[in-house]
């Protein structure tokens, strides 16, 4: 009755990451963050649809291109900082850099393969609303064959662009979820334990990807 296969909720999750991409600069547009997301998604889809970039042989080039688009628009440092919340202040600079680096690598390692399988889902950009004076939320809907999954992106302006700093999938805030988990580990153990677990997982993911 139930079949486990690639896509669905996890695909939605990865789709969320895929959508965490912006490109154009801030303009007078009524929904600039939404437009940036849309453009970013299209850029990723162009890469994924490019016949010259398909296949195992083109994996590195394809992933480099996706990575490039993501990192230009996805504020991993801000996400890492928000995930640790008050614990961020307790870390020294070296630890902060280390944490942000491992955090972003983990996110990418976890989901890049899934992003590559993102094909037929329809992305509907519904609306953009101001969440606070310095942040906005873009509401989207991923339509898979069997489901409709709401995904909301929290974005903030920095420099000339909008940056995604949180993704909310079906009411679950990615940052809120990680924050809760990180806090538990930090309260029970230490930063060393947290970063050790994350590095272990990163190693596992890289092995699985080979």
């Amino acid at each position: 009755m139930f079949r486990i296969k690639l896509s669905g909720l996890l695909m939605a999750f990865t789709a969320g990451l895929l959508l965490m991409i912006t490109t154009p600069g801030l303009t007078e547009n009524k929904s600039p963050a939404l437009d940036q997301l849309k453009t970013g998604v299209n850029q990723i889809l162009d890469v994924l649809r490019d016949a010259g970039l398909k296949g195992e042989g083109q994996k590195k080039e394809r992933r480099d291109k996706i990575h490039s688009i993501i990192t230009k628009n996805f504020d991993f440092d801000e996400m890492a900082k928000r995930c640790l919340a008050r614990n961020w202040a307790k870390l020294v600079d070296r630890e902060r850099k280390e944490f942000a680096g491992v955090f972003s690598e983990l996110l990418e390692a976890s989901y890049i393969g899934k992003i590559e399988q993102y094909t037929n889902e329809e992305v509907i950009f519904k609306s953009e609303r101001e969440a606070s004076p310095d942040s906005t939320v873009v509401n989207t809907l991923i339509k898979t064959q069997n489901n409709e999954i709401p995904i909301n992106y929290s974005m903030y302006p920095k420099g000339s662009k909008w940056w995604v700093y949180d993704v909310n999938i079906e009411g679950v805030s990615l940052i809120g979820n990680y924050r809760s988990q990180f806090n538990q580990i930090l309260a029970k153990d230490s930063y060393s334990e947290l970063i050790k677990r994350m590095k272990t997982r990163l190693t596992e993911l890289r092995k699985e990807d080979k």
């Binding site: 009755m1 139930f2 079949r3 486990i4 296969k5 690639l6 896509s7 669905g8 909720l9 996890l10 695909m11 990865t14 390692a109 976890s110 393969g113 899934k114 590559e116 399988q117 898979t144 064959q145 069997n146 993911l205 699985e208 990807d209």
Partner: peptide
């Protein structure tokens, strides 16, 4: 589960 794999509850709507 190998990284490129994911899962879905594949039911009809």
């Amino acid at each position: 589960i190998p990284n490129p794999e994911s899962f879905e509850i594949a039911d009809k709507n």
